[in-house]
Amino acid sequence: MQVEVTTDEDGFKGSWFAATIIEPSGEDEYLVEYKTLRNDDDTEFLRDDIRACNIRPCPPEIIVVDGFKVMDEVDAYYNEGWWVGVIAKVLINCNYVVYFKEYDEEKTFKHADLRTHQDWLNGKWVVPSEV
């Protein structure tokens, strides 16, 4: 099953990584294999035991035709995962400055490296602006 996983480890808060569930590995825990993260010697994809509360289905794609606006909540693809941020500035050529509150940091992204942020709540995908 294709999923996204998160962790509370320092340096990874607010991020989601694509993975595949391999098998149950304990009570309320699953062995997953990441799709982008590799082991230390770069010979295979990283595997890890992840608690069920840190696993969600892959979000559906939301097409953003008119571009993002300042204060839109987005996920930015960076360091092999999706990181939750907010559009701080709209630049030319479909580029954006995204602010990451968790790290008090800004980075510039192309439109193709952003997606509308969605939360998995009570078994449904919800766009925060709709809550």
Rank of each mutant, 00 (worst) to 15 (best):
A76W: 01
K89E: 00
P59W: 06
S15G: 08
R115C: 05
T116Y: 06
I92T: 10
P57I: 03
K110I: 15
T108D: 00
V90Y: 03
P57V: 06
D66Y: 04
G81S: 08
E102H: 07
K89T: 02
K89I: 08
D10H: 14
D28Y: 13
T116G: 03
E80W: 11
H117W: 05
Y78E: 15
T108G: 01
F17E: 03
D66L: 04
Y78R: 15
V3E: 15
V86M: 06
Y77T: 04
N95V: 15
F109Q: 06
W16M: 04
T116R: 07
D40G: 05
G67M: 04
P24A: 09
D113P: 10
G81H: 02
P60K: 04
T36R: 11
E33T: 06
E9K: 08
Y77F: 12
V74M: 10
I22N: 09
N79H: 12
D119E: 14
V127F: 11
L91N: 05
D113V: 10
V32G: 02
G26D: 00
I92L: 11
D75V: 07
K107I: 07
E44M: 10
W120A: 01
F12N: 08
E4D: 02
E102V: 03
V98Q: 01
W83I: 14
E130H: 09
A88E: 03
C58E: 14
G26H: 01
D119K: 07
A76V: 02
T6L: 13
Y78D: 08
D10T: 03
P128T: 11
A88I: 15
P24I: 00
V98D: 08
V74I: 06
L31A: 11
D28C: 07
E9V: 14
E105G: 08
D42C: 09
V5N: 05
K35N: 03
N79I: 12
Y30G: 15
M71F: 10
Y77A: 08
T7S: 09
L31M: 01
L31Q: 11
W120E: 02
V90W: 12
V90M: 09
N54P: 08
D72Y: 05
A52M: 12
D49K: 14
I63P: 09
F17S: 01
E23P: 11
N79S: 12
P24D: 01
F17D: 01
V98Y: 00
T43V: 12
E106F: 06
D72G: 00
S25W: 08
A88H: 12
N93Y: 10
Y99A: 13
A52L: 10
N122H: 06
T7I: 11
W16Y: 04
